[in-house]
Amino acid sequence: MANILLFTDQMSQGYTILITGLVIVFCALLTLSLFFQHGLPVMLYLYKIITKGREKKIKDIKVEADKEFTGEIAAAISLALHMYLNEQHDNENAVLTIKQARKLYSPWSSKIYGIQNRIK
């Protein structure tokens, strides 16, 4: 009798664990997914505002002309950029010159010395 009681008790506890366990697992992963669906974008947006300031709309940005910055300077910069971007490979002189670096004959390369002075 005690055994049966123990058994039924065990089963009811089993059902409790079954239901609560499933609910907790679902809740845990649901919270996690909700956080990454909604919480994280908000957090990243806030972080951006804190570090870089609020994003401005285009019309909010004032156009201020720099008096010093003339058209000639702009032309010079753009020319320099144009030249730089077009000169990824600089042209090299295609003429090859072969320069004799050393004498054709030298005692260092002569076999005759080596033949006579063998190590004994």
Binding site: F26, A28, L29, L30, L32, S33, L34, F36, Q37
Partner: peptide, 9 residues
Amino acid sequence: PKLMLLGAA
């Protein structure tokens, strides 16, 4: 993130 629920299921 909603695919996380499949892991729970």
